[in-house]
């Protein structure tokens, strides 16, 4: 491990407003870990054991500061009954939403995280990761948020239409999605995982600020309120654009905000006094670029952001693409270690 602190110790200091030894380095390595292990993405997504082994293998290779339990944002919707398409070397995508007609929402039944669909896969993966490396690494589990889940229950454009034409029903869907999210969050917490809410459909690239405020934010708030009851530092990741809703982010209740396409300096000045920031080397950059360029970009970002008043974690704007060259990720990590020092 680089530095005299373990990632847990480092992360722990950040969360209590203390300066760690260096910037927490946390590229969002999820399905890419399957490539590191040498298994298919399909296996990664459907086997808790494989997912855990892949995460551990990726950590051994790269030495980043947290494990990430995540296969895609359709997880909870799938457990409700939506169908996803799995491929050997690509992330699962929505194939058939389970609610074809708005009248069917009464049929929605909350899934059981311990038994239904692939929810137990996450739990098994968390259990193994926590047992194997949980003393030195936080185990972060990505929880698809109510808004994004609702979009995967109805179909994304259908749900966006529902929010205009059938707002009451849209809220009913969101309510049951929130309950399902809480059940999953609860099950993950009991195993030692630290939840991070992910809400890609809530980005300004997809919806208007008004829709965000009416249909996404209140439900994110319910989740953060639930986790705050346990004194958990809550994390929210929204990939895509979020500059238009930047003022609304604190109202979600999140302590940490993981951003993507926003200007980092702007985000620091707007949020950095009250929110810890996570971001934002672009996935396209880390996939397509070369180690030297990535190294320079990381150096520049870390130098710019490490003095964020509430703290900064260097990361990627969204998940590291599966086929990212390993030397690119290593360049990211090395540059952060070299230029992100606070003490020692």
């Amino acid at each position: 491990m680089n530095g005299r602190l373990t990632p847990r110790e480092r992360f722990g200091l950040l969360l209590i407003d203390e300066e760690p030894d260096r910037v927490v380095t946390y590229p969002l390595i999820t399905s890419h870990a399957a490539k590191v292990l040498g298994c298919t993405v399909r296996d990664y997504c459907t086997s808790g054991n494989k997912m855990a082994k892949a995460q551990i293998a990726a950590w051994k290779k790269y030495g980043h500061d947290a494990l990430s339990i995540f296969t895609g944002v359709g997880l909870i919707a799938e457990a409700f009954g939506s169908e996803l398409h799995f491929a050997d070397y690509d992330i699962p995508i929505l194939l058939n939403p389970c609610i074809r007609n708005i009248e069917e929402i009464g049929d929605l039944k909350k899934p059981d995280p311990y038994n239904d669909c692939r929810l137990p896969v996450y739990l098994e993966s968390i259990d193994i990761c926590f047992e194997t490396l949980g003393d030195i690494l936080p185990v972060i589990v990505f929880i698809p948020s109510p808004f994004t889940t609702a979009g995967h229950l109805r179909g994304i454009s259908e749900f966006l239409m529902d929010s205009i034409r059938h707002p009451e029903e849209a809220h009913m869907i969101l309510k049951i999605c929130t309950e399902a999210c809480i059940d999953l969050i609860d099950a993950c917490m009991k195993l030692g995982a630290h939840p991070m809410l992910v809400d890609p459909l809530a980005s300004s690239s997809v919806i208007s600020p008004m829709t965000f405020n009416k249909f996404a934010k209140p439900y994110l708030r319910q989740l953060t309120d639930y986790m705050h009851r346990f004194d958990l530092d809550t994390m929210l990741h929204i990939c895509g654009e979020t500059e238009e809703i930047i003022d609304d982010i604190p109202c979600t209740g999140t302590e940490l905000f993981s951003f993507d396409k926003n200007d980092p300096g702007q985000t620091k000045s707007e949020l950095g006094n009250n929110t810890r920031l996570i971001g934002n080397i672009s996935p396209e950059e880390i996939l397509m670029s070369d180690p030297a360029t990535i190294s320079n970009k990381v150096r520049s970002l870390v130098t710019q952001m490490k003095d964020t008043p509430k703290g900064f974690i260097i990361s990627t704007g969204c998940v590291v693409p599966i086929n990212t060259p390993e030397e690119n990720i290593s360049a990211f990590i090395d540059a952060s270690h070299m230029h992100g020092k606070y003490r020692y």
Binding site: G12, M189, F230, D231
Partner: peptide, 21 residues
């Protein structure tokens, strides 16, 4: 916001006290 302490063992479990489980 920081000086409360009445939380269940899960809270401390998540922050690293693994034995609590």
């Amino acid at each position: 916001e920081w000086n409360t302490y009445l939380y269940p063992p899960t809270t401390f479990l998540i922050y690293g006290s693994r034995y609590l489980r």
